[in-house]
Design a protein around this nucleic acid. Structure first.
Lengths: 193, 193
DNA sequence: GCAAAACTAGCACGATCGTGCTGAAAAATC
DNA sequence: GATTTTTCAGCACGATCGTGCTAGTTTTGC
């Protein structure tokens, strides 16, 4: 009853950690069991199927993202300050060992049907909405012009984040962060009142 | 001698097509053989290992990218026109059934060691250099200021492309292309002399 | 046309995958 | 402390994976 939920969370944390490296498809119950010092069936019993395990991983990952990116950003003052904060925390999120599970899931499930694909799309939509929502506070605070296209801002910020991830994680360019901030500042200035 | 190379290419084309959907790790020799109407060992004989098959897929994919994106762009006049062209062809490249194999490979091999990872990094570096090289023609043609940071441009163009891919392919936002061009125009204007 | 080379189907191997049953150990409830 | 429920290891299953050998067919070079 309580012990079960505890080990389930422990398994899930380990699963998310492993999935960041190998992806959710590359994650196998056998290796997960070994990492969690349990038997294969012991792990399996907590999730009635592999798909359920993968979905649980995505859910856990989203929780961690909220904890590490969304909530800290919301603690900052509304407006450009908060927009800058979410980008900063987001860039830190990308530097997790193994990378970003959202990105891995998107690459794995984009051409697929079923619950995994649907959950992935919902997650991605949530990420984009988060940016747009924070950007909207810059409008309501009078920092951005009233006719600002929030999803234009969201798409461009996402682009800055994605290319930063590419440059720093894959190509290991040391100037990636600096250039990302240059792009961000130019974007913000173009919408300033 | 000649027949062998022919079927090898046919297998490879089919393999790349499949890998766009499932990734290079998800690609299995069994399903590839079925799609190519051959026996498993018949396919396997052309590539002495699965890793060699995957590497050959990456090579074939790069050739196709050159044919469909790089070469057509180089046929355009140097400068902003060519930069705009490479973005346009690149966006079309992303709309291939199954998506972009460069992106899939990057997600699969980023945290890995070995030839597959190395080839992927080399490919990605090549993609970025392509953008920077085209951007440099805008400088030499006198359209961009002389102090333009070419890799700043490259990183931002890559961001526009990546976020376009995300928005259109995963989230199926219809305005993704329009917004990508808006971002592109703003970027170009900021570097115009 | 013939000999040599290249190509590919058949088959089998060890390994690993997800899944599921069964029973013992542990924990929770009273 | 007894009992009921939960938790988990052992084990086995069918399927599929990559790999490789062996023979026979097809294609090539002369």
């Amino acid at each position: 009853m309580r012990k079960g939920e505890l080990t389930r969370q422990a398994i899930l944390d380990e699963a998310v950690r492993m999935a960041r490296y190998s992806g959710l498809s590359g994650l196998t119950i056998g290796s997960l069991a070994a990492a969690a010092d349990m038997s294969k069936s012991g792990v399996y019993a907590h999730f009635k199927s592999k798909e359920a395990l993968q979905l649980a991983c995505m859910e856990r990952n989203s929780e961690q993202f909220i904890d590490e990116v969304i909530r800290p950003a919301l603690a900052k003052p509304r407006g450009v300050t908060r927009l800058q904060a979410i980008v900063e925390y987001w860039m830190r999120w990308y530097s997790h060992p193994g990378g970003c599970l959202f990105l891995a899931a998107a690459a794995e499930f984009d051409d697929m049907t079923g619950p995994l694909h649907d959950q992935m799309v919902a997650d991605q939509r949530g990420l984009l909405d988060s940016i747009a929502r924070v950007a909207s506070t810059a409008v309501s605070e009078g920092e951005f012009t009233g006719d600002t296209d929030l999803f234009q801002v969201a798409q461009e910020v996402l682009g800055i984040l994605l290319s930063y991830n590419w440059m720093s994680r894959i190509l290991t360019y040391p100037d990636a962060a600096e250039r990302a901030w240059a792009a961000f500042n130019r974007l913000v200035d173009s919408h300033r009142i």
